[in-house]
Amino acid sequence: MRHRSFYEATARQRIVEILDAHSFAELVGPEQRTVSPHMQALQLPVAFDDGVVVGRGTLHTKPVLIAAQEGGFVGGAVGEVHGAKIVGLLERARRERPAAALLLIDSGGVRLHEANAGLIAVSEIIRAILAARSDGVTIIAAIGGASGCFGGMGIAAACCSAVVMSEEGRLALSGPEVIETAHGVEEFDSRDRALVWRTMGGKHRYLLEDCDVLVDGDMEGFRAGIAAAMEAPQSLTLEALEREQAMLARRLQIFSSSRDGRDVWRTLGWPNPETVPLVPTDVFLAQAAALRAA
């Protein structure tokens, strides 16, 4: 069987291939036509699921709840209905206590067509993630779609128990175009794909420990990576946050003069930082492990 690309798949295809075969049952499916009233008011095309598929199933026979954003529909951006479906899924997780709630994120963040309602929806997702984690639910963010994980969804991902990414995944707060619009192409050339990748791509995030599991970009890689992340639950405690705070403070000290991913990687001890983008994932992970140990 050929390797199916996570990057190119639709939200529905991702769910089907990540979960155990035939285990997925959708909640509030497209036949309920929960379309965005705000998009309708603007006479823009709507989607019957408002760009996010939610439901339950099993992964390696363990019960999970899952949400998958459709990056092809308005860049996976979060509107009122879209956000409410994810919030509802996380509330359900607090009650059902699945082995994990999986968020397959593929989103530019707030859906600007819904402006205020989109901003609030993202805020409610962040709050719902944190509340579920306080209740002990493990929440895994998986990032590897064409729309990446940006804006408020970048904050949401960082609030999850673990982040699984592929090399093609991008995780950031502000998208490259937003930064370029604000401060010009000299600040950040959004069309320089290599630069974008060195700043927010999967390997860089992994080396900075913003990504817990780095996987190959195929479905099997994500399936295995998510299962692995589920085995290492992280609880949201004062002590854990104090450790994270210390880590982030250290990061500022060590890399505060870094201007490029290559500077960061060099400081981390990579002898030839230019080669980081080129090495295959398994070789990269082995080298990274060796460096961490050293």
Binding site: T10, G29, P30, E31, P45, V46, A47, F48, G72, F73
Partner: peptide
Amino acid sequence: TPRVVGVVASGNLEVLIE
């Protein structure tokens, strides 16, 4: 069981059949 295929991405469409 209703089925949906496709995505409302640019140049694309979704079809819901029920």
